[in-house]
Write a protein that binds this DNA or RNA. Structure first.
Lengths: 174, 174
DNA sequence: GAAAGGTACTTCGCTACCTAAGTATTTGGC
DNA sequence: GCCAAATACTTAGGTAGCGAAGTACCTTTC
């Protein structure tokens, strides 16, 4: 097996910082998770640019569409789901509304509330983004056999369960 | 095995978006990688705050220390290693210099260059951060046996190798 | 039924970041 | 040896994000 950036990183560590001491598999796993996350973010941003969406616009639309009530949510719910502050979500929705991909509708039941609804155009661009999305994921996933992929998935679940237990609730994003 | 956020996410998908179609293991693996990366970032930021460092200050000092020439680098090299722009690195170094953790020394060989050097205080706070760092990592890693951890590490390497081949060079960070 | 407190969203001031342009210096071609 | 191009870093202008304060509304309590 060829060596990747992380192998070189760990080797350098071993040479220069022997006295600090660390577990090579722990360091390796989390360094690689960080680097994969970065790669996916960059690859996704490049792919989305083709249909005219930024990464965070896509994430926001996506959060709106993958809910139990697809295409409709409150700003607060969306903020929690994508993991930004309420103020941050206001900014995102401003942009999406200006672009015509969502609508803000005042709630009649509770006039403090606002209902965010995807528009026809918003749905269309999301579907288009969905079609090209996952290419980067599949390109990377193809490095593993189906069996290996299932194994990684199972073992990562063990860690996410642990992390979600630590966090308490389920402050989530895709 | 209990279900995590990602399982619920995938299940919701299955219900509402049958027509789009996706591979559950691919979706699961990359959703979990993203969520683990987010958890680690947040946990690390919380831990670092205890010693008085922000996440990006730590990353910059860390990049400076894990090089082949620990404690000394050029701004451009550091920028490439942590994955920010040159301008971004200028801003980070301004802050670190103001705090007294690094020094900028004009190069005599090439007067366009600047040499960034860690100070005694910078080294001290980095060592302190190192001592508390990794707690979140080990807490999550403890969800797996040593054998499982080694397996995940090996399979993730397959994917990072693929991703680095796509990127071409090795534009790296820890 | 009015005051007190909680909730939902937005506005404001600030920070980190990016791209692009600017400054200073070195390198390469003729 | 001199001008053009490349390189290294900084400055300038703009964007997305955060926390905290602000506004409007609902709910509870007495």
């Amino acid at each position: 097996m060829a060596e990747d950036w992380t192998d070189r990183h760990v080797a350098r560590w071993r040479d220069h910082w022997l006295d600090i001491g660390f577990d090579e598999d722990v360091e390796g796993v989390f360094t690689r998770i960080g680097r994969l996350a970065r790669h996916l973010r960059d690859a996704k941003a490049a792919a989305l640019a083709e249909v005219g969406l930024t990464d965070f616009e896509y994430d926001t639309l996506h959060a709106l569409m993958i809910r139990d009530t697809p295409g409709s949510a409150s700003p607060t719910e969306l903020a929690a789901e994508v993991g930004v502050s309420g103020a941050g979500m206001t900014g995102r929705l401003d942009g999406l509304e200006r672009a015509g991909w969502i609508r803000r509708i005042p709630s009649v039941d509770d006039r403090r509330r606002v209902i965010v609804e995807v528009t026809r155009q918003g749905l269309a661009i999301w579907r288009r983004a969905m079609d090209i999305r996952g290419e980067a994921e599949h390109a990377l996933a193809a490095a593993l056999t189906e069996r290996e992929l299932a194994t990684v998935n199972r073992l990562l679940r063990k860690m996410t369960l642990r992390s979600e237990a630590e966090d308490g609730g389920s402050p989530g994003a895709s």
